[in-house]
């Protein structure tokens, strides 16, 4: 069954939305959209490094994304503005990554696949990385759910309940980093944060609790993956952008129907 490229693509997409549904909800609640965007741009440096040092690119992008999350946490902890820190680190990493890519012939040919994703070329090995990463992210979120939600509602309330909001923030940053690493093959660096934000934003319109929003975002993500792959197969559209476009349709429809 895994020999069919369409089945593998579907499984890859469904694995990804297990992580992006709940995590994307936190990204929306905590206004981390720019963080997600920056981390995914920085991941291009990770791709270049992986090619240069011949390691699995999930590892390379994951390491660069995690390093960026830690650097951002450290710098903002020292009083630097979040926007500025992200802008400097992410775009420097992207620029250096693109420079590095120009020296690596194999990557120069393939760069599009990492910028825009290539879900139809997902291998069995990729599936292992994607599902492994998604299960880790989802597991961490479930494990710390009450603490993460409390810290996202209000940091002072969290602090008074013995929760360290800084720790929860770091955990979310690290899970975003892992998600970026597993998503880059599927939707590409440019559209990763769309997978986090658009389904969650669509789910906001129909949800009454944080849990409903996380669940609906996962479902909307899954339907978008199926719809996007179907469009890609039938209409010969690029798969990654089709998935994101369908989530955007969900967003518009729910916003119109459930406008409060």
């Amino acid at each position: 069954m895994l020999d069919d490229f369409m089945t593998r693509a579907l499984l890859a997409g469904l694995g990804l939305v297990l992580a992006t549904g709940p995590l994307g909800s936190f990204v929306v609640w905590r206004r981390m959209a720019y963080f997600g965007d920056s981390t995914s741009h920085a991941a291009i440096l990770g791709v270049a490094l992986s090619f240069a040092f011949a390691m699995p690119f999930y590892l390379g992008t994951g390491l660069v994304a995690v390093a960026m999350a830690l650097a951002v946490a450290w710098l903002t902890g020292r009083g630097q503005g979040m926007d500025t820190v992200l802008g400097v680190i992410a775009h420097s990493a992207l620029a250096v990554g693109l420079l590095a890519a120009s020296f690596i012939p194999a990557l120069r040919v393939n760069l599009d696949a990492f910028l825009f994703g290539d879900i139809l070329a997902v291998s069995k090995g990729d599936l292992g990385w994607i599902w492994g990463g998604a299960v880790v992210v989802l597991g961490v979120l479930i494990w710390r759910w009450q603490r993460l939600v409390t810290a996202s509602v209000n940091e002072e309330l969290a602090l008074a309940s013995g929760i360290d909001p800084g720790v929860e923030r770091l955990i979310l940053s690290l899970t975003v980093a892992i998600t970026v690493a597993i998503a880059i093959r599927i939707v590409g660096a440019l559209l990763i944060s769309a997978m986090l934000i658009v389904p969650a934003a669509a789910a906001r319109a129909i949800a009454k609790t944080p849990e409903q929003m996380a669940g609906s975002a996962t479902l909307i993500g899954a339907l978008s993956v199926m719809g996007g792959l179907w469009a890609s197969l039938r209409l010969d559209t690029p798969a990654g952008p089709s998935i994101v476009a369908i989530s955007a349709v969900f967003y518009v429809v729910f916003l119109t129907l459930y406008r409060k």
């Binding site: 609640w29 939600v149 409390t150 996202s152 309940s161 609790t209 849990e211």
Partner: peptide
């Protein structure tokens, strides 16, 4: 409380315990 976060009064009372 961020409007982006759907939250009923009942759910809010159950945070963090």
């Amino acid at each position: 409380i961020e409007r982006a976060m759907p939250m009923t009064v009942r759910r809010f009372l159950s945070l963090p315990l």
